[in-house]
Design a protein around this nucleic acid. Structure first.
Length: 684
DNA sequence: GCAAGGTC
């Protein structure tokens, strides 16, 4: 497109088309064949005639308006929309978009909201037209992708403003604001009064369930009581003399059971091969990245955090070397000229040998989709080198995943051997060898474990060389990393591609969790906030609040409910509870507040006999804090299994727990108390 | 100051 840059505003009397971002505005202008180009306040616009109509296309950069209130207290249900650059820190870059659209709106005779066709896009465009233009002279462009055909089609049949969609979007904003601001203020009030804590605290529909998840996992780990199970493992000698290590049985409940099995196996002395099945398995390449997959892989392979992936990805996108990164799609656009992208990538020596194998083929596609954007792919425009190391690594990962998606599957030869010691025990021996490396050389980050097995045929004898019993202890689940927490958020459907990483940073910034060796560990403050929320606003700690919002917002979109009614319901639900909490805090009933925060150390009675925190309840006949209480209860529960498995006394069980590294620290502390005070649970 | 959601 030839551009004639101008520094002044276009001649008035045009239809102003508003896109969600500058890149989209450029695509729309291209599709409509607009040749004129100019800038206002540095913001680009395009102009010209489309089907006889004089039009101007420009854009915002996401939300230009936000909700604010003038009230400083809570409950608060009065709010209004204001330009974001006025108040919000870090939003000053929006001022030029605001000024530009305001100036362009003055010369417009009509408006088109051409933001992404989703509820946020409807809100973004609507608020701009409402605040800076005139909604009575506005229409909506409806398109599902930014391809020229789709865009032209949408402008040939412009729709009236999509009021139900706008109302549902406004409703989502208001619900999140009402819940988030009010609950945040309530807990700040509480922590200020009770603990003299003065830093900002927060709660919200997405961040609070994420925090709760980290807390639950930590409680599980720290109150973990390992449970026993037994396996029988043996060394067998194949006819060719090779020694094989095999699990003959696993998951046995008692040591006695395992001993019996072992004795019978020893008496027989050899196993017979029953069946041998050889097969080739094909492992297809992964589809091109969407953002969650990229965040996961960058964290796994290079330890780059999800938020940094988003930041680096945005940089690569603005450099023009990759497509839009905030996407959930694993599919490439059907019209994409993949061959010319591949040819261009082939000019980089890292990739040149793979490109010929990829050209002329179709890529693997994933099942995930996105209403606004395709999967992340290299545009074929090559990056300026050198670039910072981590940025390069991310780019390289994206390119490799892209090229891999065109290549042959990895072929793995597998062998499955069934064998048995008479009718005493059947077992399997499995082997795997990579036969053809396929896409594995360009994307070598997948570890395909190889196990070799000697050549065996039915009827072969496997002589027993040795056999023993192995005690297996159940392990506590792993702590979350930023990447695995993000995965969890995605799996339960909270947050969006663009926000999840930043929301994880928020719970870190608040001091709710710390990052140690990549793992998220809740702080005392995090525990206290989570307990306070569960006590007074339990809904906000659960992902089901998002489900509820989605249902409400959807019913507004379908015109079945009015936004005002949904907002009123939320207000009527929250207001009495906020007032109740406020009264409790103002009543200075310190003891009940401390009990609600659960893990506070204070002079209040009764206290945990082990750690001095406020008591939560009695277990083993002792007043215990919530964590030692859970640990003690789990110990009593698990003792039944240990007695069945090993026939040991409660005292011996406690002594063994002290030595188990996989036992949670709260469990070991309770065990130590049990040992030193000679406690028993026979009376339970 | 506090949310979640867009995008630079």
């Amino acid at each position: 497109m030839r551009r004639r840059a101008t520094t002044s505003l276009p001649r008035p009397g045009y239809v102003l088309i508003i896109a969600e971002k500058p890149k989209a505005a450029r695509k729309i202008a291209g599709a409509l064949g607009l040749k004129g180009f100019g800038r206002v306040y540095g913001v680009p616009y395009w102009y010209g005639y489309y089907r006889g109509e004089y039009v101007v296309v420009s854009s915002t950069a996401g939300h230009l308006f936000t909700l604010v209130t003038d009230r400083h207290s809570y409950p608060v249900f009065e709010y209004r929309w204001v330009p974001r650059w006025e108040g919000e820190r870090g939003a000053s870059f929006l001022k030029k978009f605001y000024s530009a659209l305001k100036a362009l709106a003055r010369g417009a005779k009509a408006f088109v909201n051409a933001c992404d066709y989703d509820i946020e896009g409807s809100v973004i465009g609507y608020l701009i037209i409402k605040e800076l233009g005139d909604v009575r002279r506005a229409k909506r462009a409806k398109f599902s992708s930014l391809t020229p055909q789709e865009l032209r089609k949408s402008f040939q049949s412009l729709m009236p403003l999509d009021w139900d969609m706008i109302e549902s979007g406004l409703c989502r904003h208001e619900l999140d604001w009402i819940w988030g601001i009010n609950v945040s203020r309530a807990i700040m009030h509480m922590f200020r009064r009770v603990m003299s804590y003065r830093k900002p605290l927060s709660a919200g529909r997405v961040q609070s369930p994420a925090l709760q998840q980290v807390i639950n996992r930590e409680i599980e780990r720290r109150t973990h009581v390992p449970l026993p199970s037994y396996s029988v493992v043996a060394e067998l000698v194949a006819p060719n003399g090779e020694v094989l290590k095999v699990d003959l049985a696993a998951g046995l409940r008692t040591r006695e059971e395992a001993r019996e099995l072992m004795a019978r196996i020893k008496a027989i002395g050899y196993a017979i091969v029953k069946n041998v099945v050889k097969k080739d398995e094909r492992i297809a390449p992964n589809p091109p990245f969407n953002l969650p997959d990229l965040q996961q892989e960058a964290s796994r392979i290079y330890g780059i955090s999800p938020a940094e992936v988003l930041r680096l990805g945005e940089g690569l996108y603005l450099d023009g070397v990759i497509s839009y990164p905030r996407t959930n799609s694993q599919k490439l656009p059907p019209t994409l000229d993949t061959d010319s992208i591949l040819r261009s990538l082939g000019r980089l020596s890292q990739y040149s040998s793979f490109v010929p194998r990829a050209i002329g083929r179709r890529p693997v596609q994933g099942s995930k989709t996105d209403p606004a954007h395709p999967a992340i792919y290299p545009t074929g425009q090559l990056p300026k080198l050198p670039m910072p190391e981590r940025k390069w690594r991310l780019y390289d990962l994206i390119v490799r995943r892209f090229i891999a998606s065109f290549l042959d599957p990895v072929i793995v030869s597998t062998v499955n051997v069934d064998a048995a010691f008479d009718d005493v025990v059947c077992f399997k021996i499995k082997g795997r060898v990579v036969k053809s490396r396929g896409w594995l050389d360009i994307y070598p980050f997948t570890d395909i474990k190889e196990t070799r097995v000697p050549l065996l045929s039915p009827g072969d004898e496997l002589r027993l060389k040795s056999v023993k019993i192995k005690l297996q202890l159940s392990r506590a689940p792993k702590r979350y990393t930023k990447a695995s927490l993000l995965r969890w958020m995605e799996s339960v459907g909270i947050g969006t591609e663009a926000t999840r990483a930043e929301i994880i940073e928020t719970i870190v910034r608040r001091g709710y969790v710390e990052v140690k060796s990549g793992y998220l560990i809740p702080t005392e403050l995090g525990f206290q906030v989570a307990f306070a929320l569960s006590e007074f606003f339990s809904e906000i700690t659960d992902v089901s609040l998002t489900r509820k919002f989605e249902e409400e917002v959807e019913s507004v979109r379908l015109g079945r409910k009015r936004r005002a009614d949904v907002v009123t319901e939320a207000k009527e639900f929250l207001e009495p509870r906020l007032n109740h909490v406020k009264e409790l805090i103002d009543s200075r009933d310190r003891a009940s507040l401390l009990r609600a925060l659960k893990v506070v150390k204070d002079e209040v009675v009764p206290r945990c006999v082990i750690c001095g925190r406020v008591s939560y309840g009695e277990s083993l006949g002792l007043p215990l804090c919530v964590m030692h209480y859970i640990a003690a209860e789990k110990m009593c529960e698990s003792y039944r299994r240990w007695r069945e498995a090993e026939g040991i006394s409660f005292g011996d069980f406690a002594r063994r727990l002290l030595k188990m590294r996989s036992a949670g620290d709260y469990v070991r502390e309770v065990a130590e108390y049990v040992v030193t005070h000679g406690l028993n649970i026979s009376d339970k």
